[in-house]
Every structure is written in structure tokens, then in C-alpha cells.
């Protein structure tokens, strides 16, 4: 009977990746890509942009890996990089929207791709996802980070570059809008 092989811990994988081990970094990608993708998808509301942010976040993480000292969990550090990528995309997108009007057909296509990325058919969960998607950007960012992905207000405020009070107010606003739409 074969002895069970111990899987390396996340700390060991990080240490191996810091030494240039691609296989260890791939294992970290496999472990965290779903959560990073969920965060990016809900913040960008666009499947293609979310994929791009995930890819960019992992490339940036690889480049900055030597600076990771383990003061926080690897996931926390990684998600912060992903959030920065999303915020960069949103800033670029904001500039674009001032010049262009989204055409109805294109918006419907994006909506379909978004639903497909979530892996959901029409139903209760899809209704909630669409309600989250409909939130104003500022409220949605805070809600996704704090309300869904467990960030503290301090962490979210720091990542988003807003005051903690603003963060709390945005979360309250998001919850009110969601309740209005979802709770009869």
C-alpha cells in the first residue's frame, strides 16, 4: 500500500514560488483563481475584463513575490493586487464612458456573457447577482469587498482610497438598494 504523499502547505508553495518555481506558483493559481475571479467579475461586471484582471493580478503577484513577507495571508495579499487591477480598469473605463455611449445591443451581449461566467441560469441566485451588478460602482465595490468577500472596512477603505466612514456609508447604501430590489 502506497504511503500518502504530503501536499505542500501554502507557505511552502509561496517559498518555492519565491525561488522561481513555476509549478508551485501554478498550484497557488489553482487554489486562488476562483476567488480572485469572483472578486474581479463582480467588481468589473464584465467577463472579458475580469479574465484580464485575473491574468494581470497573477503576473503582478509573480513580479512582486519577493516583496511578500508573510505578514498577511498570501490570499489577502493577492486579492489586494487583484483589486488594484480592477480599480485601474474602472478608471480607464470611466474615461471611455465620457466619450462613448454604450449601445443597447452591446450591453445585452455583455450581460449574457456575465451570466454565463457566473455559471448560473435564471433563478433566485441570478436575480441577486443582477441586483449586485446594478449597484452604482462605488457602492458595488464596497459591497463586493466587505459584504461578500470578507474584507474589513479598514482594508476596503485603504484599497479603494476612501475614508472608513465613506466605506461604511457605501455598504449601507448598497444593502438598502439590494433590499429594495430583492425583498418584497
Amino acid at each position: 500500500m502506497r504511503e500518502p504523499v504530503d501536499q505542500p502547505t501554502e507557505t511552502e508553495l509561496v517559498a518555492l514560488a519565491q525561488g522561481g518555481d513555476h509549478a508551485a506558483f501554478e498550484a497557488l493559481y489553482r487554489a486562488h483563481s476562483g476567488r480572485v475571479h469572483a472578486l474581479c467579475l463582480r467588481m468589473t461586471c464584465n467577463a472579458a475584463l475580469a479574465d484580464d484582471c485575473v491574468q494581470e493580478a497573477f503576473v503582478q503577484a509573480w513580479r512582486k513575490l519577493s516583496s511578500f513577507q508573510g505578514a498577511s495571508a498570501f490570499g489577502t495579499w493577492l486579492y489586494r493586487i487583484a483589486v488594484n487591477e480592477v480599480l485601474g480598469v474602472q478608471r480607464r473605463d470611466r474615461r471611455r464612458v465620457t466619450h462613448l455611449q454604450v449601445v443597447g445591443e452591446e450591453e445585452r451581449t455583455e450581460e449574457l456573457e456575465y451570466s454565463h461566467s457566473l455559471g448560473l441560469e435564471a433563478g433566485e441566485e441570478m436575480d441577486v447577482e443582477q441586483a449586485v451588478r446594478a449597484l452604482p460602482e462605488g457602492a458595488r465595490n464596497v459591497f463586493v469587498m466587505v459584504g461578500l468577500h470578507g474584507y474589513s472596512h479598514e482594508e476596503a477603505a485603504s484599497a479603494l482610497g476612501v475614508a472608513v466612514g465613506t466605506c461604511k456609508a457605501q455598504l449601507h447604501r448598497a444593502r438598502q438598494l439590494l433590499a429594495k430590489r430583492l425583498i418584497p
Binding site: S33, V128, L182
Partner: peptide, 26 residues
């Protein structure tokens, strides 16, 4: 509201494997 939000997935894998492109860039 919390009951409905609790049902949302916190982990949503990308629709396609992004690792080959990431690996090439690394």
C-alpha cells in the same frame, strides 16, 4: 437579505484556463 446573499458563490472559476497565458508571461 443576508439569507439570500449567503447563497452566492464566493469562488467562481474563470470560464477558461488562464494559466497557459500567465505561464508564458512569467
Amino acid at each position: 437579505l443576508d439569507a439570500r446573499l449567503a447563497k452566492l458563490a464566493r469562488d467562481i472559476p474563470p470560464g477558461r484556463d488562464l494559466w497557459p497565458q500567465i505561464s508564458a508571461r512569467l
